[in-house]
Simulated assay, not measured.
Amino acid sequence: MSIDQSCFDPLDDIWWRMGATLNWWDSTLGHPPAWMPDQNEARARLTGRRPLLLRALALIHEHRTATTGQLHQLDPRLPARPDSRFWLDMLAAGLIDYGYPFNPDGRTACTPRTIPWMAVRLPAHMQIEPALEDMGFNPVQIAALGPGPLRGARQYDRHNLICTDLSVRARQAGWHTLGEAYGRFSMLTGDPLAGNGGPDLILQGEHARVCVELTASANMALESKFRRWDRILAHDTCAATHVVWVNAARTGSLLTTLDAYCQTRGRQHAADISQWRQTWATVDGWHPQPGNPQPADPQWCRGTLTRMAAMFGFDSLDGWNLPAGFDTGLLYE
Rank of each mutant, 00 (worst) to 15 (best):
R169D: 06
G106E: 10
R169E: 09
C163D: 12
C110D: 14
G136R: 10
G174C: 08
L91P: 01
A93G: 02
P123H: 04
F102T: 11
G146Q: 12
F137A: 02
R121P: 04
G174R: 05
Q141M: 10
T164H: 00
Y98M: 14
Y100G: 00
I115M: 15
H125D: 15
Y156K: 11
R154L: 09
A143K: 08
V140R: 10
P130Q: 09
Q155S: 12
A92N: 12
M187Q: 14
P139F: 04
L145G: 14
M135T: 10
A170W: 12
W117E: 07
T114D: 14
A143E: 15
D89C: 09
A170M: 13
Y100F: 02
R121Y: 02
H125Q: 13
E133N: 11
C110Q: 04
G174V: 12
I162W: 04
R107E: 15
D105N: 15
D89H: 06
R113Y: 10
T164C: 14
A153G: 12
L150W: 04
D165G: 08
E180I: 03
L132N: 08
D134G: 08
T164N: 08
N138F: 03
L88V: 03
L95W: 12
Y182K: 07
L150D: 07
H159G: 09
Q155D: 15
C110H: 03
D89N: 05
A173W: 09
H125G: 07
A153P: 03
I128H: 04
W175D: 02
R151F: 04
S167Q: 05
R121I: 14
L150A: 02
M135W: 00
C110K: 09
N103D: 15
A143I: 00
N138R: 06
R158E: 09
L95Y: 14
D165M: 13
I96W: 03
H176E: 04
M90R: 01
R107P: 00
H176Y: 03
P139E: 05
S186P: 00
H176D: 05
P147D: 07
T164Y: 00
G179T: 03
R158V: 03
T177L: 02
T114I: 12
G183K: 07
H159S: 06
R169L: 15
H159N: 06
A153D: 13
M126R: 15
P123W: 04
A181H: 00
W117A: 10
R158Y: 04
R151M: 11
L178F: 13
P149A: 10
A93E: 00
W175I: 10
W175K: 09
Q155F: 04
G179M: 07
Y100C: 02
N103T: 08
P104H: 05
A153V: 15
M118Y: 00
A173P: 00
G152K: 08
R107A: 11
